[in-house]
């Protein structure tokens, strides 16, 4: 990898200080650095100043009240994976956190950083000379998407593991700027454009995530397909929250990652409420997923496989959760 470009470094102790620093053009937030630092070393970004959010104690809290969670954006993935409250209320979140990269990444990487991680593509996560030799690409410095040269947008894939779980559980995000905070449904943080997948304004950061209290009896899980059993990003990742009452589905939420330029909550699952979990239902679920995922050739694995495996993972997970 190349050397880091030069930048100024600040480590504020409060959120207000951080927001004031981030309001200056050319400033960029960094937390664990596991996503940003490799990109900086590949010459992908050249910020004038990095604002390290790791010194802000207020972002480092996990709170739980009657099953509702308030999670600071600075909480590390290692803590999410180990926290007893999360294991009880939303085990899929702990599972997803545990499935990210390796242990040394997880003790640095944060919730906020994972939610905001950059989209990935074989034509993008490369060294500067590699990208230059290929005429750059639509996501950065170029005008053609090598994945879909006829298209008008970037098809880099979003690969965060936590977002699908939080989307399935109906989470909201609190974002902060120098002007104040706002609270939005987590889904509103994302758009289907690999080159601009976050809707955050310049200088705006995710400060906290709120997860509503679960319906009694809710089960949840997360599964991802990847080439190796560890470290790799998901080729497709599926989160499911499920409530089964008297043999029929009372609640079903499905979140997907790795297949599109944004993580998303599967639309139309309310149509399954009242039905038993059987082969017919799982076949309909698979069909619904096939319609809504759109993997492109942004990984070395065929997009056809990623489309298939997304629905297979969802079928297995729903069957498993329904069986208890």
């Amino acid at each position: 990898m190349g050397a880091l470009p030069e930048f100024a470094f600040a480590r504020p102790a409060t959120l207000a200080e951080a927001c004031a620093l981030l309001a200056v053009e050319g400033a960029r937030a960094v937390a664990g650095g596991t996503d940003l630092v490799p990109n900086l070393r590949r010459g992908i970004e050249r910020p004038a100043q990095l604002v390290d959010l790791g010194g802000i104690a207020a972002l480092d809290r996990i709170e739980e009240r009657d099953g509702a969670l308030a999670l600071g954006a600075g909480v590390t993935l290692a803590r999410l994976a180990d926290d007893a409250r999360i294991a009880r209320v939303l085990p899929a979140l702990a599972e997803a956190a545990r499935s990210v990269a390796g242990p040394a990444h997880r003790s640095a990487a944060t919730l906020g950083g994972n939610l905001c991680q950059d989209t990935r593509c074989v034509f993008y996560n490369q060294s500067e000379w590699w990208r230059r030799a290929n005429g750059w690409c639509l996501k950065r410095d170029g005008d053609t998407c090598h994945v879909a040269p006829q298209g008008r947008r970037c098809h880099a894939a979003y690969s965060g593991d936590l977002a699908p779980v939080l989307l399935a559980a109906g989470a909201e995000a609190e974002t902060a700027t120098a002007a104040g905070t706002r609270r939005v449904p987590l889904a509103d943080l994302y758009r289907e454009d690999g080159a601009a997948h976050l809707t955050l304004a310049p200088g705006e950061i995710v400060a906290r995530v709120f997860v509503p209290a679960p319906t009694p009896g809710r089960r949840s899980g997360y599964r991802k397909a990847r080439a190796r059993g560890a470290v790799d990003f998901p080729l497709a990742g599926v989160a499911v929250v499920l409530v089964v009452r008297d043999g029929a589905i009372a609640e079903l939420g499905v979140g997907l990652t790795g297949t599109n330029s944004r993580p998303f909550r599967l639309a139309g699952t309310e149509g399954f409420v009242g039905q038993p979990v059987d082969d017919a239902l799982l076949a309909s679920l698979a069909k619904l997923i096939q319609k809504q995922v759109s993997p492109m050739r942004s990984t070395v694995t065929q997009s056809y496989y990623r489309r298939q495996v997304a629905s297979v993972l969802a079928q297995r997970l729903v069957r498993e959760l329904a069986a208890g």
């Binding site: 596991t34 490799p38 390290d52």
Partner: peptide, 19 residues
């Protein structure tokens, strides 16, 4: 490049010294 920071494993090649 794994080292320990406050007892937890960290990758020194991705860690800014000032952090």
């Amino acid at each position: 490049c794994t080292v320990l920071v406050d007892g937890a494993p960290r990758l020194a090649c991705l860690t800014l010294a000032a952090s």
